[in-house]
Design a protein around this nucleic acid. Sequence first.
DNA 1: CTGTATCCATCACGATACTG
DNA 2: CAGTATCGTGATGGATACAG
Lengths: 111, 111
Amino acid sequence: MLDSVQCPDCKRINEVLSRVGDRWSVLVIISLGQYGTLRFNELKRNLGISQRMLSLTLKELERDGLVNRTYHPTIPPKVEYNLTPMGQSFREPVNALGHWALGNLAKIDSA
Amino acid sequence: MLDSVQCPDCKRINEVLSRVGDRWSVLVIISLGQYGTLRFNELKRNLGISQRMLSLTLKELERDGLVNRTYHPTIPPKVEYNLTPMGQSFREPVNALGHWALGNLAKIDSA
DNA sequence: CTGTATCCATCACGATACTG
DNA sequence: CAGTATCGTGATGGATACAG
């Protein structure tokens, strides 16, 4: 039924949101944006996300070209994640949202 | 577990997303932003949303002070929705997202 | 026309256990 | 450490029917 959306702008937003619109994707991107490079368990601790969801989220973000995965075949293994250029560019609109949030969250709560 | 999020910026984004982060809320706001004022069934047709979800979404948006509801007690009844100033201001960051989407959706698909 | 109430299927997600 | 596999459950959301 998402294809039944008429408003053209809505369709576009819609497609993006269905890609990177879920909470965990956004949070992973923000976190990587702030810290640069993080390992699997660092992200896990940082976000309080379950192994399962983090694994799925990272896989999708990597597939979509937003996140870079580097595997070091040491013992124990070490895997590092960071943002691709496209992932970096995504921080812009997200920060815009964050800025709006900062200014309006209080008003929303009082309403 | 959302309170277990460490990264401070993440927490803020998180709160906002939990309010207006679902797909329908965003689409309703975009649609109202573009058309100005719409009636219940106009929104319904526009978005291909179910009655139930539209009703729930609008109620929440109204409660959060993003959308204005005007009831005309005619027969048959007529209810009009439009954005409050805060709702309007929300279009900014959303449009930023839309702009990013426009430029990167193709790249995401190819990746 | 503008909703609300109920039912039901699907699924997102966490918990847990296991592997290289 | 960095995952994958499996299971159980609560939430999500559509379909349908009904109401003011």
